[in-house]
């Protein structure tokens, strides 16, 4: 088979415009600093699952790497050396530089996690079949919305949970086909980043439901009772609350799975 050797391609230094080099260094340094700020403020939790150790160390690792790439570029811009970038390196284009400033521009917007507005098409209230989860070991009052859905999936028959006490927080989510006293207490669950995030929830029947703001965070205590929520739904556990109080958005808006 033919093998071509492109290794020592004639070392033609490509003259990049000086301002392009400045922009390149700025974007690299800026992206590195932006990551650092996200990590230090904890806002990175709005975008990726920082509870996952590998995602956490990769996010930290990228900071020194980007800063050294940016620092090196800046050094070479201030003090140009006869660089030997081979000619097969296509030129740094202005388009590429501009595209890569995008996260820095969008990063200027207030950082917000996904909420009720981002639920686009429905909240999953079906039991989850997560095999690795051991939701049965968690005390009922400590279970999150995600733990409950896993528990339903583990047990198969939810009626055995009738009368169990529930203590969860989540945001209020409604759909058009729900009655006035119905809503869901919902959370976004995420395993890696917002690309895989989807909303899950538990149905609630509560007389004071009309007073609750859509998307507002609530703390709910009550008991489970299997019943039919919406016409056509399979019987599923519904929360009958004894307490519903508005609460602050938790530090980690997502439930990590």
């Amino acid at each position: 088979m033919e093998i071509r050797d492109y290794t020592q391609q004639a070392n033609i230094g490509i003259k990049q415009n000086s301002w392009q080099n400045w922009l390149k260094s700025l974007v690299l340094l800026g992206t590195g600093l932006y990551m650092l700020v996200l990590l230090l403020t904890g806002n990175i939790g709005h975008y990726v699952n920082v509870a996952n150790p590998s995602i956490q160390w990769l996010s930290w690792l990228v900071v020194p790497l980007l800063l050294s790439l940016g620092g090196w570029s800046l050094w070479r811009t201030v003090k140009p050396a006869p660089t030997t970038i081979p000619a097969n390196q296509s030129r740094l284009t202005t388009t590429a530089l501009v595209i890569c400033t995008l996260p820095l521009i969008l990063g200027l917007l207030p950082s917000r996690p996904l909420g009720a507005d981002a639920v686009n098409g429905g909240v999953n209230i079906a039991p989850l079949g997560l095999t690795s989860a051991s939701s049965g070991d968690i005390a009922p009052e400590d279970r999150t919305v995600l733990d409950w859905l896993r528990e339903f999936g583990r047990l198969g028959d939810p009626t055995v949970l009738n009368g169990e006490t529930v203590d969860v927080i989540g945001f209020v989510y409604r759909e058009l086909d729900m009655a006035d006293d119905q809503f869901m207490v919902a959370r976004f669950t995420m395993s890696c980043c917002v690309a895989d995030a989807y909303a899950i929830g538990l149905p609630v029947i509560y007389d004071g439901a009309p007073d609750l703001a859509e998307g507002g965070w609530v703390h709910i205590q009550g008991t489970l009772q299997v019943g039919t929520f919406r016409p056509g739904d399979d019987p599923l556990p519904i929360i009958l609350p004894t307490l519903v109080e508005p609460t602050e958005e938790p530090d980690t808006a997502y439930l990590y799975s």
């Binding site: 975008y47 995008l102 690309a195």
Partner: peptide
């Protein structure tokens, strides 16, 4: 705001 969160999330990951 949703778009920015989704874009930054996929990118940061």
């Amino acid at each position: 705001s949703i778009f920015a969160t989704r874009f930054l999330g996929i990118l940061i990951e």
